[in-house]
Design a protein around this nucleic acid. Structure first.
Lengths: 187, 187
DNA sequence: AATTTAATAGTGAGTACTTACTTATTATAG
DNA sequence: CTATAATAAGTAAGTACTCACTATTAAATT
């Protein structure tokens, strides 16, 4: 079979099986070993494909990375979108707290890669969080918090670190911790 | 000059200038470009030494990394030690909050490297924080918080994320944020 | 104090192997 | 038949590391 139809929540994409296999294999390696530590040779072997095919489909190693990042950003936007569309301030807080705990195990590698890349200047874009930060500031304002902007910043930072710990496998008491946060914000 | 005397707060170490230069150059590159992305050739050039000298002094690239990590851990222990020796629960909280804001610019690379390495399974050791976690749990217990263990975990995570943002250069309102946290814990 | 001996610091060219990427060629689908 | 998918076999530059060698310093012996 040369082509297969893959449903991605936002767009339909036609991708050959092998092209897709390359993407998945690269994701696994990039996320767990790091981009520089992953050779195109390794990717090809894991994907069961000739090395040349990577370059036919993605032009360069960086092109492959960018393709993965685009995929990853879709997944972020889906979860973010759910928060952004809330109209009740309490729901905004609640959804935001729930956010790190909603990350599916099957998508860990996407998130791992994204968090790792934040350490590379080229891919670290703090402004990407701006809309969510504004939404949270609005929510805390509605709820009459003393320093809504700082509260928003505080919450975002906490959530980033919680996500990080979950992805590293360090947060063993996830549900307990989630309840604790909800209780703390009486959300 | 072959040898120079370097005062390191815990031990005195005799190191040749070039050996020291290798260490510093490697730190800069490891912290900012990543370990795998840094070649021994690059390190040698930045240090202004022959590549072979790296291996004479540190045996391998990994040996060099380990030497840097040892140095870095000393710096962590100094800051941690200050918190651990506090006897008043409020002081424990206050010192802990102040912790990320005490990181000197001149030592950013040490911390950057350590935080980056937490993503590599080999170097990620969550138990290293255990003593501090216990101390914080004790402090929150003394202060009659409802869930001292969770509060401690929460605070540690917050601090990790603040440190991270500072090191990435994303936290522009450091003093404001620090005051906000102190106010929040009335510390 | 002078001279030999030993040890360490440092170099530069070379090692086998890996890297990202290319090119020529063949297979396969519509 | 044509266009694209896929491969195998390249390439030049880079990789961590070694080796044979020299330079510098310290220690031991006169």
């Amino acid at each position: 079979m040369k082509n297969s139809l893959h449903l991605q929540v936002i767009t339909y994409t036609l991708m050959t099986d092998k092209k897709e296999k390359i993407l998945q294999s690269a994701l696994v390696l990039f996320a767990n070993e790091g981009v520089s530590a992953t050779s195109t040779n390794k990717i090809a072997k894991l994907a069961g494909v000739s090395e040349g095919l990577i370059f036919r489909h993605y032009k360069s190693k960086k092109g492959l990375l960018n393709a993965i990042i685009e995929n990853a950003e879709q997944k972020v936007n889906i979860l973010f979108g759910d928060i952004m569309m809330q109209t009740d301030p309490k729901s905004v807080i609640l959804k935001t707290i729930e956010f790190p705990f909603l990350i599916k195990k099957s998508e860990y590698n996407y998130w791992k890669l994204q968090f790792k890349l934040k350490w590379e200047e080229e891919y670290n874009n703090p402004n990407k969080m701006k809309p969510l930060l504004d939404k949270l500031t609005w929510a805390f304002t509605q709820l009459n918090y003393d320093f809504p902007a700082l509260e928003a910043q505080y919450m975002l930072q906490t959530l980033e670190s919680i996500s990080t710990e979950i992805l590293k496998g360090n947060l063993t008491n996830q549900q307990q911790f989630k309840q604790f946060l909800i209780h703390k914000y009486s959300a």
